[in-house]
């Protein structure tokens, strides 16, 4: 195994071990959190606002979107702290520091994957048998993780210079959540057409669409979703790597 991969693996293992060292329910929290929010959203959108009623098993639809979204949001929040939390380490030995934001994304991805296995079981139990299109899902997961890593690199560097970044991020994520097709479907006439066109430019819209269609509907995702996901991933990942590489020497002195 090459050095970089080994380092990444060790950091991910550490992340997972440390996070649940004193926690009774352990990784289940990663499943419980979306389950709780699912219950809240289900009540809000079927009993109060009555818009989810149009979708069968709305709770399962929600969960299909909430898992990847929670992965995305949790990874970005974690990445804001990753360099600061490890500043002593960074200042004492040399290692490829880009491994820090990436490994925190991967650790979150591991949680998402475990939770998705449980979700898939639920979906099948309620008659949402996946189609052949499910084979494209791993590709979408890898792309989403790569894009998330790109964002994570930028945020980790930015937060070293300005602590406002992590605060700002919380606000942005809240707006971003509602601007992404996580809790509502696109193309079902629930959203004004002009709005939908704008939402499709959202970097995570493609991934959400693919999760919903492959896992919940069992259909092939629409082409725009793939184009959007691939293009955004390429742009964000490259930008993240460039910014990280460019800023790394001064970040180390800044910490």
């Amino acid at each position: 195994m090459t050095g970089g991969l080994l380092l990444m693996k060790s950091l991910v293992e550490k992340d997972l071990k440390v996070r649940y060292k004193r926690s009774f329910l352990g990784f289940l929290w990663f499943l419980l959190k979306p389950l709780f929010s699912m219950v809240v959203y289900t009540i809000v959108f079927t009993k109060i606002i009555r818009f989810g009623g149009a979708i069968e098993h709305f709770s399962l639809f929600l969960l299909t979107g909430l898992l990847p979204w929670n992965f995305f949001a949790a990874s970005l929040s974690a990445s804001a702290k990753t360099l600061l939390d490890n500043q002593k380490l960074i200042r004492s030995i040399y290692f490829p520091r880009v491994a820090l934001p990436i490994s925190s994304v991967i650790a979150n991805a591991v949680h998402m994957l475990m939770a998705m296995v449980v979700l898939e079981g639920l979906l099948i139990a309620f008659g949402h048998i996946p189609g052949i299109s499910i084979i494209t899902l791993p590709i979408a997961i890898v792309l989403l993780a790569a894009m998330t890593s790109g964002f994570a690199m930028m945020i980790s560097v930015g937060n070293v210079y300005y602590r406002d970044v992590s605060q700002f991020l919380e606000v942005i994520l809240l707006a971003w959540f509602y601007a992404s097709p996580v809790i509502y479907p696109l193309g079902a006439g629930l959203i004004p057409a002009r709005m939908e066109a704008v939402i499709k430019f959202n970097p995570v819209a493609g991934a959400m669409e693919i999760f919903h269609s492959t896992m919940y509907y069992g259909t092939w995702p629409e082409l725009w979703a793939w184009i959007s996901l691939v293009a955004w991933t390429a742009v964000i990942l490259v930008a993240g790597l460039l910014i990280f590489k460019r800023m790394e020497p001064s970040v180390v002195k800044e910490l």
């Binding site: 080994l6 380092l7 060790s10 071990k17 440390v18 060292k21 380490l89 030995i93 290692f95």
Partner: peptide, 21 residues
């Protein structure tokens, strides 16, 4: 410095080993 307080001595040795390659 690379030691994580929650990990055991041996676990920390593995983690630091990875940092050193």
């Amino acid at each position: 410095v690379g030691f994580h307080p929650e990990l055991t001595g041996a676990e920390n040795v593995f983690l630091n080993g990875a940092l050193l390659g």
